[in-house]
């Protein structure tokens, strides 16, 4: 299957503008960016996609082997960049996607030339001398919540929707349930997200990086934002006056402004 279909790639904005690639995190899909896209689209060519296993991606392309590690998701990012032959990309990654962006930028420095990390955390579980905010048992609780809530995901409907990218009425149905995910796939993504440790990758980041944190975020608290800022050489830290883990939803204007402001500073 074509990568554009596989990853449900959507391109919008100014066709000749600099490229901004928006990558969703664990939980929902590219609809997470809906409120910031209009502000970015005025100046940029905006590329959106769903990781395989999320949103309207092709579930048949999913395998636990590939998507059981962040490298598999980074491969998706690189596949999209290569398919569209994107260059000089500003990669905007929310949550776990910030760390996926680090891997992708290291693998394709010619394509990804700056990073925006939205509410990043390199390690969610507390470790010796490091406070991520969670214990392994907390992650198991999250698994239980995933088991209990399908959010409209239906084993009968999913293949129908995924297999008909050209049928907008099905898509409309799904946009209502854009956090709906096959529970087995969500479990793997959750484990990969919350059990990964990307701290060692941060000092190797070579591209200009903006760390965008929220003032109140239970998933990525400010001390984690400070850790990322300190670990990524030459990074810029911006703290948004926003509550929760999704500033692109709770404070879309401020989030878009911070991203656009950073992109303007790029050479």
């Amino acid at each position: 299957m074509d990568v554009r279909d596989r990853n449900n790639v959507v391109v919008t904005g100014r066709p000749d503008g600099p490229v901004v690639l928006l990558a969703h995190g664990f939980g929902c899909d590219q609809n997470m960016w809906r409120l910031v896209v209009p502000a970015l689209a005025a100046e940029h060519r905006v590329v959106l996609f769903d990781y395989v296993g999320s949103g309207r991606s092709d579930l048949s392309a999913w395998s636990e082997e590939r998507y059981g590690s962040l490298d598999g998701y980074a491969r998706d990012v690189l596949d999209v960049c290569e398919e569209l032959d994107l260059r000089d990309v500003a990669f905007v990654g929310h949550s776990v996607s910030a760390m996926i962006g680090v891997l992708a930028a290291a693998a394709a420095p010619d394509r990804i030339t700056s990073l925006v990390m939205v509410a990043p955390s390199p390690r969610y579980i507390d470790d010796d001398g490091y406070r991520g905010g969670f214990s392994a048992a907390d992650i198991e609780e999250l698994m239980a919540s995933l088991e209990s809530n399908y959010l409209g995901w239906s084993s009968a409907m999913a293949p129908v929707i995924m297999g008909n990218p050209d049928r907008p009425e099905l898509a409309a149905e799904l946009s209502d349930g854009f956090c709906a995910t096959d529970p087995a796939i969500a479990r793997v993504f959750a484990r990969t997200t919350f059990l990964s440790d990307s701290r060692a990758d941060l000092p190797d980041v070579k591209v200009p990086t903006l760390v965008l944190e929220c003032s109140e975020d239970v998933i990525a608290p400010r001390e984690v934002g400070a850790y990322v800022h300190a670990a990524v050489p030459g990074s810029t830290l911006v703290t948004l006056d926003a509550t929760g883990h999704c500033p692109q939803l709770s404070a879309p204007e401020a989030t878009a402004a911070a991203i656009a402001g950073f992109l303007r500073t790029r050479p």
Binding site: G27, I139, E141, A144, L151, C179, F194, L249, S250
Partner: peptide
């Protein structure tokens, strides 16, 4: 906050699924 009333795992779920869906 509402999420303070939840278990930690529930809080993770709230932030990654519940709150975004409610907003949208």
């Amino acid at each position: 906050r509402f999420s303070d009333l939840l278990t930690v795992g529930g809080r993770l779920y709230h932030e990654t699924h519940f709150a975004p869906l409610l907003r949208m």
